[in-house]
């Protein structure tokens, strides 16, 4: 089990909500989507790949086989699902530092939501309601979402540049080349392994590598 794959962390949080206040949350979601400025903070936090909130009604939980017992749920649930770069602390803290009022708006009608400030009760609420990730695959473990965006920009710019400068004079080429570098000056970061997310995760990884025969001798 790990919530971490490469530089990405997967978070699932499922919190109960009274079925008769679900419509309020749906109105809030609808209003937020209609009004993109409410999500500006979320988008500015560039460590986030994406975040999604979904309401699952009392009778909407998947029933995949007739032999699966029917549950009798008292509450509807709100599923929050997000992938991000960095540690749990870094992510949750960025959320509460930067957009506490936005969080409170989305979670306001959830049972026993403590508000996002002060921090410790919010940490406990998220931790308590978080479902750990059983399987997590990452195709680009060295890449953050910023790196992926940058790679796309570099590719597009480079192709444009190549097409536009084939017939250029030396002077034009130099000018265009300077412009290319200037345009890409925030997209040239190196891509190496992630800093250690936590000592526990690091130790798990080292033990796995030792068992796989990739680490020698004593240091496991």
């Amino acid at each position: 089990m790990s919530n971490i794959a490469g530089k990405a962390y997967a978070m699932n949080v499922i919190t109960p909500i009274r079925w008769y206040t679900v419509w309020l949350n749906k109105v809030i979601f609808w209003a937020a989507l209609k009004n993109p400025s409410t999500l500006k903070g979320l988008i500015t936090l560039s460590l986030i790949h994406y975040a999604r909130w979904v309401i699952i009604g009392r009778n909407q939980f998947p029933h995949v086989h007739p032999s699966q017992p029917k549950e009798d749920l008292k509450y509807a649930y709100m599923l929050f699902f997000s992938n991000f770069n960095g540690s749990w602390d870094q992510y949750v803290d960025s959320f509460t530092f930067a957009i506490p009022s936005g969080l409170d708006m989305f979670w306001k009608w959830n049972i026993r939501y403590p508000k996002s400030v002060a921090l410790t009760p919010f940490h406990k609420y998220i931790r308590y309601n978080q479902l750990d990730t059983l399987h997590y695959y990452n195709a680009y473990p060295l890449a953050t979402s910023n790196d992926v965006k940058s790679a796309r920009i570099v590719k597009a710019k480079l192709l444009d540049f190549d097409g536009a400068t084939r017939e250029s004079s030396d002077g034009e080429f130099a000018r265009e080349y300077r412009k290319l570098l200037r345009d890409l000056q925030h997209d040239l970061g190196d891509m190496y392994p992630t800093p250690i997310v936590s000592m526990s995760a690091y130790q798990v990884e080292r033990r796995q590598r030792w068992h796989d025969g990739q680490l020698d001798g004593s240091k496991h």
Binding site: K40, G41, T44, S94, F97, A98, I99, I153, R182, D183
Partner: peptide
């Protein structure tokens, strides 16, 4: 992507307080 120019601006009002990630 094609329009990126290497520049950034303040994302005014994105965070509840400007120094949210530093304070």
């Amino acid at each position: 992507p094609a329009k990126v120019c290497g520049g950034f601006s303040v994302s005014k009002g994105a965070f509840d307080t400007p120094g949210a990630l530093s304070n």
